[in-house]
Each structure stands twice: as structure tokens, then as C-alpha cells.
Nucleic acid binder design. Sequence first.
DNA 1: GTAGCTGCAAAGAATTTGCAGTTCT
DNA 2: AGAACTGCAAATTCTTTGCAGCTAC
Lengths: 161, 161
Amino acid sequence: MRLDRNKESARQPLPSAVERFRKVLQRKSLRWTREREAIMKVVLAREGHFEVPDLVAALRKEGVDASRATVYRALPLLIEAGLIHPTVLSGERHRYEATFGHRHHDHLICSQCDKVVEFRFEAFEILQREVAAKHGFDLTDHFHELIGICSNCKGKKSADA
Amino acid sequence: MRLDRNKESARQPLPSAVERFRKVLQRKSLRWTREREAIMKVVLAREGHFEVPDLVAALRKEGVDASRATVYRALPLLIEAGLIHPTVLSGERHRYEATFGHRHHDHLICSQCDKVVEFRFEAFEILQREVAAKHGFDLTDHFHELIGICSNCKGKKSADA
DNA sequence: GTAGCTGCAAAGAATTTGCAGTTCT
DNA sequence: AGAACTGCAAATTCTTTGCAGCTAC
């Protein structure tokens, strides 16, 4: 999760997301285009995690003009603007999650049924900064994912092999 | 990092790694072959993180018989045996790290120079189990990676764009 | 003897890139 | 006008698979 304590972004509607995105573009002398705007909106509207091929399909379904290539090219910018964040998730393809307008959280995942629980534990946030500081780092981001077996799956026999 | 508190595996030489691997194979009615053995040894001998294509190249260089396909097929077994573990590390391809004979640790990474610091902080281990338990999960594994700017890079101007 | 293995080469997928035409600023 | 964009299709990679012949048990 991109750490972001100096901006009261959570819970704000679209305008400030637009602002953030524009700011990044401006700083890099890049342009605000209809495609980038469309991608941004669809991304922010998505619930939970998403993978790029799915996102591309979703765009197409909404009749949004934005080719796969353009989507791939936009992602790093959205990340830089703090609107989305890569997530780990044992999966194969890259996964992202909209972070703008969402309270920061990490994930607890059942390895058997893939159930995902979002959690937030302030102690982690504090200790992480401490650990980083102890090694002379300024913490800017982190990935934290817990893997386990949920109560529901505990009973079931593991049909291993 | 695969959690493993019931086995005093760390610091032990090869034999017990072999034993573990054989045990997994046995349980799944799979076979102990010269290729799997060779892959296991080369993997355990590697320092730090590795990606599959590099591992395959390393094997070839040592004249080890083991095709790419066989390597890919062996990895899940090595993971199951607790000899290696996938790591996050923002990279593109899958990355692994030998865990057998190494004390568990997580990573602190400089996003500018890619410097990697291994850290271990007992509090995290404990709190993670607590969080999992609070949601009814049995924790079996976790990914935890801190991203920041190291002291060395702090001075440098960020030649962004 | 048989189920499982292996290498190979082909297949699959996700992501990236070169290019020619378009569009912000 | 000029730099930056976009879609397309081709190119790259990593990873997986089908198959025919080998090998551990």
C-alpha cells in the first residue's frame, strides 16, 4: 500500500482523483487524454482486485475507447498518482487494487477457498516505519499479505494426493 | 515465508533437505529422480533470490541434466517441501528464495537502487498470527516486504522527468 | 510391468514495442 | 508546429503442455 498520510484523500469523490492524476501528468509533461480519463474512471469504479486482461475486457464492454496497449501504458501513471496499487496475491498475472477513496488495508487470504479478508492493524504500520528507520530507510510503501486456512475450510479434508 | 516452528531445520546440512523432499514425493507417490535431486542441490546452493530462467541457465552451465520443463515441474514440489519460497520483490517474473537452512526473514528494499536488507522482527510474527486468529484463520504463510529509499539514495536528486 | 518421468518443441498468455496516423498544448 | 498519444499487429518473454521414449519402484 502506498503510504499517504499528508493528503486527506479517503472518501472523497472523483474530483480529487482527477486532480492527482493531472498533477502527475503535468509533472512529467504528459497529457490529459480522453483515454486516460476513461481508464481512470473505470479503474476507480471497480470493486476489489483486478487483473489487466479483465480490465481491458470491462472497458471494451462499456464501449470505452482504450486499447490494451494504452491500458498497459496508463497503469504506471495511475500507480504513481496513488490511485491504484499492485497487490501480491499468489496469482500468476499482475494484480491491482484501487486505493483511492479506500482506507489502507492489507489482506488475509485462505489458500484453500481464496476467501479474502481485509484487515488494518495500526501496530503494523508503526512497526514497519520503525524497522525501515532502523536501517536508514524512509518507508514509502509496503506489501503485506497473510496466508492461512479459514475457519470454513478447516473442517474439510484436504484432498491432497 | 513458510512458517515452520516445529522442525529444527535451520543450519542443518543437506541430508535433512533430502529427507524432506523425499517425504513430499513419497506422500504424493512421486519419484526421486536424478533430475529432481540435481535441481534441489543447485537451488539450495544459490545465494539469495533467483528467477527460473536464471536457474535454468545455471543448471545448464554446471552441466546438470534438467530441462526447463523439468525445472518448472519441480518448483511446486520444492515449495511444498519447504525448501524454497516465492518472494514478492516488485520484479516481473516469479522469484524464489531458498529457505532451507536459512533463518526466516522478510525484506526491506530500496526502490531507487534495489538494495535489499533482510530483517527479522519477532513482533511481526506474533501479531500476524494474532490477526489471522482474530478472523478465524490458521496462519500458514505470509509475504511481507517494505519498500523505501535507503540512506544512500536519499541525497541523490531524483532524476524523475 | 507399469505408473511416473524427461526432453523437446509447440502452444499459451501476458506484456511490450515499432510505427503511422491523430491530437493535445 | 511539435511533442506526446493511440491502436494495431508483431515481437518478446515466461510458463505450460502433448507426446514418444526412458526409468524408478
